[in-house]
Design a binder for these strands. Structure first.
Lengths: 212, 212
DNA sequence: TTTATTAAGTAAGTGTTACTCACTCTTTCC
DNA sequence: GGAAAGAGTGAGTAACACTTACTTAATAAA
């Protein structure tokens, strides 16, 4: 059952990205933006620059993407799928709801630290796009990520490992918000994330509280 | 001593906004952007629109502001000063570090819920501006807000009300991150924030942890 | 009161940039 | 072989942020 679920998941995430035979121009465009995002922020990257880096004409971008932002969403989607795969892999075999949450926190911190381009897109670049929340990247990946956490919380409540007197959605928001807020300054000021100690501090706070 | 500090703060926050005699055109521009931000997001507001709403010419914007973003930062600065004043007022007379943190959380949730324009600027619009972090609004207000929280945490640790084995900065990030993440969907999807229950849930989580 | 100086505000640009459209070349497949 | 669909081009455009040279109004010194 679990195995089946994983295979379903796997094909689900891989479908859009690598399996389907996509036109080479499209791949080149996506790769070009990824490269450029390593050097400068999205707003200061021009479509002309993307085209030049990709070795195609500007017009081609608009054959495959609705607009510049849409291209960004697609890049995010691709990177997000990889992240979710890794996270679920890390999660495998972990027992107990709190340990599972710890695993997710650690995986996320690690991934955010390693995949700076991905993290900057997710935490800073797409935030102010109202239509990001209608995009595949959001509807598919972000929600999936949230759902994984929610399921663990509900499981934890059912097994009496997590208190019942807090709204599960707020617990989820505390976890996600804390993680993001720990990573944000690191991403913006290009500092590294101390994954292990940050995981420890976050879990200690979220699991046991700050009260002496 | 405390009184002196408050007076200093007060004049500090008011200095930029209301006290100084600013040219009417400047005020009209700031007011115009505030109005427009109530209706649409920053990126889809044009400088021409701002000028027209303000009843001045486009060029005047660039007499008083470096660029369109800088104008946004100034608007945020103004609104942030008001927020800090209110927050400190709410905090007055509250005893105990945890109660103080609760007060801050509640004030923030309330203000975020009421001042949608302010909150949208702060949580979504300025995030992807690399130079926001060099702006007055950040260097003065955001840091001030963080510092207030940090001081309370340190006080709490000193008085044995808050555990010593978590990095104070992480505690601060958990608080700020949680609050922001609770408010973000409400701001984006224009839902109202249930201030009291959210405050309760957040405090319960952060103070006592989610572990049963 | 005159004159010099600074500040407030204007009007007409300009360069850049995201995006479009009509077209060609290439592949696929009956 | 030919048609239909897909991949890719390149010239062009409208919109937009921002500039610059200028005018008008207020301030202050002589």
């Amino acid at each position: 059952m679990l195995l089946v679920k994983r295979i379903v998941r796997h094909t689900k995430y891989m479908a859009k990205t690598s399996t389907k035979k996509l036109p080479p121009g499209r791949l080149k465009i996506v790769r070009a933006l990824k490269t450029l995002l390593g050097k400068k922020d999205f707003n200061s990257i021009t479509t002309a620059e993307i085209a030049k880096t990709a070795g195609v004409t500007e017009g081609l971008i608009y054959k495959y993407f609705n607009d510049k932002r849409d291209l960004l969403f697609k890049v995010l989607l691709e990177l997000f799928e990889q992240f979710l795969l890794q996270m679920e892999k890390d999660l495998k075999g972990v027992e107990g709801s709190l340990n599972k949450l710890r695993s997710i926190i650690q995986s996320t911190l690690f991934w955010y630290d390693q995949q700076r381009v991905f993290t900057r897109i997710l935490l800073v670049e797409v935030r102010n796009s109202p239509d990001f929340f209608k995009s595949e990247a959001y509807q598919q990946c972000v929600r999936d990520y949230s759902k994984i956490i929610m399921d663990i919380i509900h499981e934890g409540i059912g097994l009496d490992e997590i208190r019942k007197d807090i709204k599960p959605s707020v617990i989820r928001q505390v976890i996600q918000g804390s993680v993001e807020h720990v990573c944000l300054p690191a991403i913006i000021f290009n500092r590294e994330i101390a994954v292990e100690p940050a995981t420890e501090d976050l879990c200690r706070t979220i699991f046991f509280g700050i009260k002496q």
